[in-house]
């Protein structure tokens, strides 16, 4: 990765004294990562979101720690995607706070939040269909660029430099997710699996610290799923923190460091994958509780 992006990731606008140790890339998978030990990258603090009479999120608090892969699971309609939308500024929470690296997201606009370092993919793929794969990723890379309209009009040096950088970075990312040979094809002509990968590349191009993947394995067959698990681990090893919404339990259990379970907009469990697997509340949420036991 070019140094330029690494440099941009420094929190320029927040207070400088976040005295974190030199970022060793990714936590050791052997050590359990607890909220107390690791540094929280994103915090949801008692977030409630109501649409009219419907409470979509009900006092959800959770932390995403730097360098981990956090799984967000729950039955359909539990509020997982809504949770995403609150983190990426699509919705403003009715009450409660979302903090990224200790800074409140507040009323920041969506593109500003992306530039702050949170990027996402979409549950139902939302690429720019008529643009090529490369251009799609370059749009993401542009989030780190500052060429003005005048600069582009006159092809000033910064424009040329940023174009070159953006293109190189986009190609690098396409290679990273394994679809570089599709670079020049229109996104809509890509096979389904490649479109999913392209979305990931586009999100990574914005230079985030937190990458939110919304059901990236939806519609995948088992071998594609295991390839995706490898990719997610690879992404984490690059120093990204990953938030993963996923339905496929094998995938979630296989790849995540920690899991948060939502049901009806409330957090019902949080912990290591093996604990979640045996947690009675989670089992009840997924399988239902027999009438006589309730």
């Amino acid at each position: 990765m070019p140094e330029h992006y690494a440099a941009d990731n420094e929190p320029a606008d927040s207070e400088p004294g976040t005295d974190e140790p030199t970022p060793d890339i990714g936590p050791d998978p052997g050590t359990p990562v607890g909220t107390d030990l690791a540094k929280a990258l994103l915090e949801l603090d008692d977030v409630t979101l109501r649409f009219g009479g419907v409470t979509a999120l009900d006092g959800v608090s959770l932390n995403i720690n730097e360098g981990e892969i956090l799984g967000l699971i729950g039955p359909n309609g539990a509020g997982k995607t809504t949770c995403f939308n609150v983190m990426t500024g699509v919705y403003q929470p009715t009450s409660g706070d979302v903090r990224f690296r200790g800074v409140r997201l507040g009323r920041r606009q969506r593109f500003q939040i992306t530039r702050l370092g949170i990027a996402r993919t979409f549950q139902n793929i939302r690429l720019f269909p008529e643009m090529t794969a490369l251009e799609n990723v370059m749009v993401g890379a542009d989030a780190r660029h500052n060429t003005s309209v005048v600069g582009a009009l006159l092809r000033l040096p910064r424009h040329r430099r940023e174009e070159r950088e953006g293109r190189d970075r986009a190609l690098e990312l396409l290679r990273f997710v394994g679809i570089e040979r599709r670079a020049d094809e229109a996104a809509r002509n890509l096979p389904y699996g490649d479109q999913r990968r392209l979305e990931i590349a586009r999100a990574m191009a914005t230079g985030p610290q937190l990458l939110c993947l919304d059901e990236p394995a939806a519609g995948f067959n088992p071998s594609e799923k295991s390839a995706l698990m490898d990719l997610i681990r690879k992404i984490r090893d690059q120093g990204y923190t990953v938030l993963l919404i996923e339905h496929d339990m094998r995938l979630v259990m296989g790849v995540t460091d920690r899991i948060v379970v939502l049901e009806f907009g409330r957090k019902i469990a949080e912990g290591l994958p093996e604990d979640i697997r045996t947690n009675p509340a989670v089992i009840a949420a997924y399988l239902g509780v027999p009438d006589d036991a309730a």
């Binding site: 699509v90 593109f111 690429l127 720019f128 989030a143 953006g166 999100a203 914005t206």
Partner: peptide
């Protein structure tokens, strides 16, 4: 001039807006 704009961050942003405005915004396009 327009061609220069088209082949730049500006032109890409326009195309992205045309294709999917919400996705563009979430990818950092103002």
């Amino acid at each position: 001039g327009v061609r220069n704009l088209e082949n730049s961050r500006v032109g890409r942003s326009w195309l992205a807006i045309r294709e999917d405005e919400d996705a563009a915004e979430l990818m950092g396009v103002p």
